[in-house]
Amino acid sequence: MQQEVVLAMLAKEPAYGYALRARLSAALGPLGDAMNAGQIYVTLTRLEKAGLVASEEATSTEGPARKVYGLTSAGQERVGAWLAEVSWPRPDLAEFHLKLVAAAAAGLADPLAIVDQQRRELLRRLRDAQRAAMAEPDRSDAALLLEGIVLRLQADLRWLEACERNWTERRGNL
């Protein structure tokens, strides 16, 4: 589990560990089943050690004491930087998706602006790949590899279009 994802899920407001897990499950649906609860707690402990998260024992009348986790100011900074960062070749769709979810939930950034920025970056790469492909003679080995890159980038761009549609509609419904 990427640390920034856990951090971003806390950006809206502090949460118990199990509530944090519920937020992730809501955003990921069936894909979230692969995460186990232990992983999240391990990540939280690490983040706490790094000074990005602080926890408080919540006093409860019944059952065991539970910790509420919240971002420190260093944690907030890290989330801001993560939202602004454009990272693609990593094929991490879930990370990008969660970025949009977290940005919208916490009101930290406009999901559509993030989509736009990402789209520009992908178009730049597509431009490079397409130019390289156009310069190759037909049926060269390199042309085939470049075609693969172009097709993948196109698929990513199509998904971004879907993200844009979806977040535009959600904004309209607010």
Binding site: P89, R120, E121, L123, R124, R125, D128, A129
Partner: peptide
């Protein structure tokens, strides 16, 4: 609604994409 000039690519990152 938007206008972009894409010139000045990302050369060098193509390898990472593959």
């Amino acid at each position: 609604v938007d206008e972009t000039r894409l010139a000045g690519g990302t050369s060098g990152k193509l390898g990472a994409l593959a």
